[in-house]
């Protein structure tokens, strides 16, 4: 434990913490995207998949056991990711208190420049999304367990779908910079991997955006219906 805390005390350690928690969160968004696509298999398939997530591991663990373990792990990962980001941002901000009058930022990618604000947008979306699809607090007609119906009704609202698309767009841009940066932060020296890390990250980010966007778009276009 002491080794971990000493490592975390350095800027490199905080970046490693950010990379590792980012990998966990990437694993989640990937699984979540695949789960969403169950909507195309129909109401039955989606609802039973949701039911599976509630009972997975029974009877060795109680119902909801694995679900809550995963939720706690994800919450911890979000916490570590955001805390390290905040601390690193503060360190960098105080490293240049007198800014340049002229600065040419032609070499930075859009993704690298928007990591911090993009992350904040994604975080705000996560809160909204939980209130929308998990607790149903801000959902117009939420019924616990009817995942498919909740999804279709939820995305029939145009502003909700628009916000959702903006958020998964921000997530994908965030993922692009994050995914390839992981290889640098964790010190990968395999030249063949490093050569393809940026195109591979771009491909995954685009695939992620399409995988997430296709579900609400199918609702708006009337492909996924309540009928």
């Amino acid at each position: 434990m002491r080794r971990v805390t000493t490592l975390y005390s350095s800027s490199v350690g905080k970046k490693i913490a950010m990379a590792l928690s980012g990998i966990i969160l990437f694993g989640f968004v990937l699984m979540h995207m695949l789960g969403n696509l169950k909507a195309f298999e129909g109401r039955e398939a989606m609802n039973s998949y949701a039911e599976f997530l509630r009972v997975v591991g029974t009877p060795i663990v109680p119902e909801y056991g694995v679900l809550w373990l995963v939720r706690i792990a994800l919450l911890a990962a979000v916490g570590v990711h955001a805390l390290s980001a905040f601390q690193l941002w503060r360190q960098s901000r105080s490293a240049r208190t007198h800014r340049y009058l002229k600065s040419r930022s032609q070499v930075f990618s859009y993704a690298s420049r928007t990591m911090r604000w993009g992350g904040v947008i994604v975080l705000a979306f996560i809160v909204y999304h939980l209130l929308h699809m998990t607790t149903g607090t801000v959902h117009p007609d939420f019924e616990y367990g009817s995942v498919y119906d909740n999804l279709v009704i939820g995305f029939q609202s145009a502003p909700v779908t628009a916000f959702y698309l903006v958020a998964v767009g921000a997530l994908s841009i965030h993922l692009y910079h994050g995914l390839w940066s992981v290889f640098s932060t964790l010190g990968n020296e395999n030249v063949r991997v490093n050569r393809i890390r940026r195109p591979a990250a771009a491909a995954i980010a685009i695939g992620m955006f399409l995988g997430y966007a296709v579900v609400p778009l199918a609702v708006v276009l009337g492909i996924l219906t309540l009928g």
């Binding site: 800027s11 690193l88 960098s92 070499v107 690298s112 990591m115 390839w180 932060t185």
Partner: peptide, 15 residues
């Protein structure tokens, strides 16, 4: 020592 001197940290911009 890098951190002690008050430099920022790397965010892989490549600048």
């Amino acid at each position: 020592q890098h951190d002690e001197e008050g430099f920022g940290n790397c965010t892989n911009h490549g600048a």
